[in-house]
Design a protein around this nucleic acid. Structure first.
Lengths: 221, 221
DNA sequence: TAGTCCCTTACAGGTATCTGTAAGGGATTC
DNA sequence: GAATCCCTTACAGATACCTGTAAGGGACTA
């Protein structure tokens, strides 16, 4: 089993819950917790330089702001920083995000080893994840179905781009002109009209205001 | 000090972190944790009927869905249900929400006794909150400044209502008619036009799509 | 080759949004 | 009372959105 684990999680209650669970359920010599990405990174780096590196990083993705100035503002940045020093360190992300479009890039781009979605079973999932990752396997909380990322529930990139532009205040005419400049087709205002109207049906929206509000709430925009 | 405390929190790691902290820092005979509102309510009711009531409820506001069918779907509903049985039970809300417009009604309408905002100091805040509430005082996490609720950064209720209706797909004409039916003034389409246009400036939005997207992202709608 | 299907596009008409002007009313000040 | 300020409202014109129709083209099939 891992001998040294580093935990980065800004919610104090969650942080303590994880430490307590790991101490009681796994045989790990050193479990170190930090509330800030920067502090976690410093601790990791010092240990690495002393030749006593951490073998596993467990980190949240979002870290709230407060008065303390920060260099590393998110779990993603922490992972990048840590991997730049030690590209072999194992990483498990522990977050409340359950959107496959956000989680998949963590595996494909940042090559994390496990993803645990916070919830009613997350401590059990986390223990399982640690054991799986220790065996060089990846782990994903079972309630997540990452395979559905490209399924019928996912909007295609084109539709998403249109909606993002609308949400950013561009008119359909402006979007049409943008597309023409970039030689992206289709690009007529009429087609954009129709694409958006189709999304009304798919998402049960009455108009564009409604659709945008829904999609932002769903985290798709 | 309280003898019986009931905790409702759906994140297992957070849940355990709270229990562990309270057990180690406060002298409380019974600390009962539940992951579901319904289960928490049942446990509360049984204890009440047996004449061994819980004296304090600590609850989150949001509880994620899963396959388990639920009657009580949020902390707010749990509080209402519990207070309907025992109007004297003390309630502390422990949530990550930091928006005064959402928190203030908890005090004014649901008459909660304390609010702890999850974060890097939330376990310490929670311990303080329990001690304050035990002394019949209210407690709010110090990083929250609920007094700013009506300040320049907060939108007034009227504007918010208009934007919510727009985000729900109603046209300004429909909103105007709604207001007239409810005898709420002002209610002309023209005034609504102007209110929204003013918000464009305040929030740096180009049009209504942009404004709605921004406000949803800010959690105000 | 002809027929079919689907996507793209243009266009038109109706509706909704956005902006500006102007008129009226209440509150305050002088 | 008169002047001023602010808010509400009506109205008008320009722009943007939404829907429907129709024409054209590419892909596929018979």
């Amino acid at each position: 089993m891992f001998k040294k684990i580093l935990i980065a999680e800004d919610f104090q209650d969650t942080n303590k819950g994880i430490v307590e669970a790991l101490e009681s359920r796994l045989q790990i010599e050193t479990i170190q917790e930090e509330l800030y990405c920067d502090k976690a990174y410093n601790r990791f780096k010092v240990a690495h330089e002393k030749g006593e590196p951490y073998e596993l990083l467990i980190t949240d993705l979002t870290f709230s702001e407060n008065h303390v100035p920060r260099k590393l503002t998110s779990g993603k940045k922490l992972i990048d920083a840590v991997r730049a020093v030690d590209k072999n360190i194992k990483v498990i992300v522990n977050s409340m995000i359950d959107n496959p479009t956000e989680i998949n890039p963590l595996f494909s781009e940042q090559e994390i080893n496990g993803y645990v979605c916070k919830g009613r079973n997350s401590l059990n999932d986390l223990v399982n994840a640690i054991q799986e990752v220790y065996q060089n396997r990846t782990f994903v909380s079972p309630q997540l179905n990452l395979n559905t990322a490209g399924s019928v529930f996912e909007m295609d990139k084109y539709d998403l781009m249109i909606l993002k532009n609308l949400a950013d205040g561009f008119t359909k005419k402006e979007i049409s002109e943008k597309l023409k400049k970039q030689n992206i087709s289709p690009n007529s205002e009429s087609t954009i009209d129709k694409k958006v109207s189709k999304l009304f049906d798919e998402f049960g929206a009455k108009n564009t205001h409604h659709l945008i509000a829904k999609l932002v709430k769903l985290g798709k925009i």
